[in-house]
Design a protein around this nucleic acid. Structure first.
Lengths: 227, 227
DNA sequence: CAGATATTCCATTGATCAATAGAAAGGTAT
DNA sequence: ATACCTTTCTATTGATCAATGGAATATCTG
């Protein structure tokens, strides 16, 4: 093989490695995961990922340099968002590999859930099969901005923080299905605990919006009529 | 959010980042790409990627630790292979992101191909549409082991090294379609140049076996009858 | 234009990772 | 058992990356 050939290959693999390096840090993955939910400012991202603003900004710069996300100014805020759904698919692929290849993922999840008994979880396919059944109420417990940026058809928005004050909006005779950002987001878990404490029959939906997005399932934008 | 919640999330993202770190280095991507073709020994991998044995071994350890590949001893040789096709899909996703998001990929490829004029390239869909047309001969110019580990149905195996000596096996009135490991492998490029110099009408197939594998297209194993 | 706010830049420190060469380990064959 | 071969381990050096805090920049408001 000639020198020119070698240089060509090195350049190509170097470009692919740019993608790899961008997703080689846990904090950046968390930020990317959040951006799969909705566009957000640095401040929001830092708060939701429990990062100092400076660090969050630096990691976002890194993601921007790898062009997985783009940033645009909105007044004094800087708003970051995914370049497109391919970034979301990339993260989804990485999660799938980790879930398939690392038994640690199961162990970590199971160990954690041991502390939270009585938490029934359902999958989106379960919901779809008993779709005709009308005794389910789907609740999106993420912050409202994320709901507006895309939510499951028919779901109503009650952010976890407001849940305790808005229980009267929920039908007592229904099964309440709470969902959030995905299997590793804990909003729906806490929602279900609250609901059960208040006497509702509540279950947790495993998947989140980004999982549906990566799979090409339908997502509704904007406000939806409350039931 | 409680401390336990934060520890859980950190652990989960740390696991996902293991995947990211494994693919964050150009040399490891090249090794993974090679393993998408066929299982190989450390020596073969080192030779094909122009790496010192020690470095190749170290990078393979890294891939093994991330469980994208597995190793088993065969006599004095150590044979590495992909864990399964999911590793291949992972690499395919990374390539797709790089191709979609980085104009540099196009620039590098175009600059390189400037030095190689008269190189017509066809896609696998082109081949499939004119499938009924019988005037095509598909040639797999990779090393025989890789051909045996999976090749396009109907393709014959003539490794690039043997091509000059085996021209008589090719029909002069056909269009010869050469393929190799993928768009960034240069074996088919050199094959087409050789064939053209010898008076054949030859074109390069853009995709390689790993691209078909990642897409779930049919692949034939073992020796195939020569035409 | 001054003051307030959000974000980025910069410089420093510590940590992790890559490349290399030579020694060691595991396996085969005589 | 010895010699030989392939691969891995170990240690060192240099390079890159992450975290942090404080200064600088950009925008909006009064």
């Amino acid at each position: 093989m000639s020198d020119a050939d070698r240089i060509f290959k090195d350049s190509i693999y170097e470009q692919i490695a740019r993608v790899g390096r961008a997703v080689a840090h846990p904090r950046r993955l968390e930020l990317l995961d959040l951006l799969c939910q909705a566009p957000m400012t640095v401040e929001q991202l830092a708060q939701k990922s429990a990062l100092p603003i400076g660090s969050a900004s630096q990691h976002l710069q890194h993601l921007k340099a790898a062009r997985l996300v783009i940033a645009d100014r909105q007044g004094t805020y800087m708003r970051y968002r995914l370049k497109d759904d391919l970034s979301c698919s990339l993260l989804h692929t990485l999660k799938t590999v980790a879930e398939q290849y690392y038994a640690e993922m199961r162990v970590i999840t199971e160990d954690f859930l041991m502390d939270h008994q009585n938490l029934q979880a359902v999958s989106i396919t379960d919901i779809q099969t008993r779709g005709a059944d009308d005794s389910l109420t789907l609740v999106d417990v993420r912050p409202v901005e994320e709901y507006k940026a895309g939510h499951w058809p028919g779901a109503i928005s009650i952010p976890l923080e407001a849940l305790a004050d808005r229980l009267m909006e929920l039908p007592v005779d229904h099964t309440i299905v709470a969902y959030c950002r995905g299997p590793y987001c804990l909003l729906s878990l806490h929602a279900v605990k609250t609901l059960q404490r208040e006497g509702f029959h509540a279950v947790r939906l495993i998947e989140g919006v980004s999982d549906w997005r990566a799979r090409g399932l339908p997502i509704v934008l904007g406000d939806a009529p409350l039931k």
